[in-house]
């Protein structure tokens, strides 16, 4: 039986605010899931705490809505013991980058086979509007009446710095782009990190208006592997790498336009691209920044178990208890 988007809906009433970007992400995910060809019972969504973390309740798969920031750790235990499953983590900017920052970076460096989707709305929504670790410096919120003092994280730079093997960005309203990124993430063996720009209409409306409403493509820089990186309404703008590795904007017709290489051995290019922002260069790259192969934690662990079993035979409990120096009393 072929599954459809409907098969991935649950009977639970979806309880996000009207206009929340999460609706679009949920719809995109539910319609994308059937094309993966993975049975519902073999798919698991794990989340932490926050608005985004309600996601598993609405996916008719196995799921766990866990504790704040810990989803990558919980998913690591699940993925490591059950390599047969497709494990997804849904998290937010506060959940992943503040309280769960440690778990996020370690899951990425280990290359555990989990797909981590970070819904970034640059605000704490569920606690009603405090600044988050991705809020801009000077952001005025309920907890920062005179402006935030925190310099924000760039989630992609962080992930690349944490040795992530797959790093991508999508936009909640761009269903086609998001589906392409999710597909690439699902196909990647190992951990995949996807930042999804997600609008919070209540506490941080239009934080990403420059790309969400970017109908003529003036601000979105599409990353296509193996193709020159150009954008603009008529494709007239391009990115070029300076000799020091940093990136500048040039005319698409000029020489030296950067050709995207998501599979480059060095993380330097992906990192440089992650530094290209609306603020720094007037454009925002979307798509897959980095997609490289590295041994996967779960596979390595399974290999060690297989090697040990091949070498020593399947464990015999009685023999184990009697190992070491023993003596008999008659």
């Amino acid at each position: 039986m072929t599954l459809t988007a409907k098969d991935f809906r649950t009977d639970q009433e979806v309880r996000w605010c009207p206009g929340c970007g999460d609706y679009a992400i949920l719809a995109a995910m539910q319609s994308f899931m059937p094309e993966l060809g993975i049975e519902r019972e073999n798919t698991v969504f794990v989340s932490g705490i926050g608005c985004a973390a309600r996601f598993p309740y609405y996916m008719n798969t196995y799921g766990m809505h866990s504790i704040h920031g810990r989803a990558p750790a919980i998913a690591t235990g699940l993925a490591t013991t059950r390599p047969d499953l497709s494990v997804w983590v849904v998290t937010g900017d506060g959940d992943a980058l503040s309280i769960g920052g440690n778990h996020l970076i370690h899951a990425l460096r280990r290359n555990v086979n989990v797909k981590i989707l970070l819904f970034n709305n640059r605000i704490y929504g569920l606690t009603k509007g405090q600044y988050s670790p991705t809020s801009e410096l000077g952001k005025v919120t309920k907890s920062t009446p005179m402006g935030s003092l925190d310099w924000p994280f760039n989630p992609l730079s962080l992930a690349i710095g944490a040795e992530a093997t797959f790093v991508a960005r999508a936009i909640d309203t761009d269903k086609a782009g998001m589906t392409a990124v999710l597909r690439a993430a699902a196909e990647h063996r190992g951990s995949a990190f996807v930042e999804i720009f997600q609008n919070c209409p209540i506490f941080n409306d239009d934080a990403f208006a420059f790309v969400r409403d970017d109908k003529d493509g003036a601000n979105r820089i599409p990353l296509r592997d193996g193709e020159p990186i150009t954008w603009g309404a008529g494709g007239e703008k391009a990115l070029r790498q300076r000799s020091d590795g940093s990136i500048e904007v040039c005319d698409a017709a000029e020489d030296g336009v950067l050709v995207h290489d998501a599979r480059h051995e060095s993380a330097a290019l992906a990192f440089a691209l992650s530094r290209v922002t609306q603020d720094s260069l007037g454009g925002t790259p979307v798509g897959v920044f980095r997609d490289v192969e590295r041994p996967v934690y779960d596979d390595l662990m399974a290999e060690q178990l297989a090697t040990a079993t091949a070498k020593r035979g399947e464990g015999d409990l009685a023999a184990l208890l009697h190992s070491g120096e023993t003596w008999d009393i008659g």
């Binding site: 698991v44 699940l78 499953l85």
Partner: peptide, 9 residues
Amino acid sequence: GAAVGAAFG
């Protein structure tokens, strides 16, 4: 957390 994840599995 990982132990709970493993238990779920």
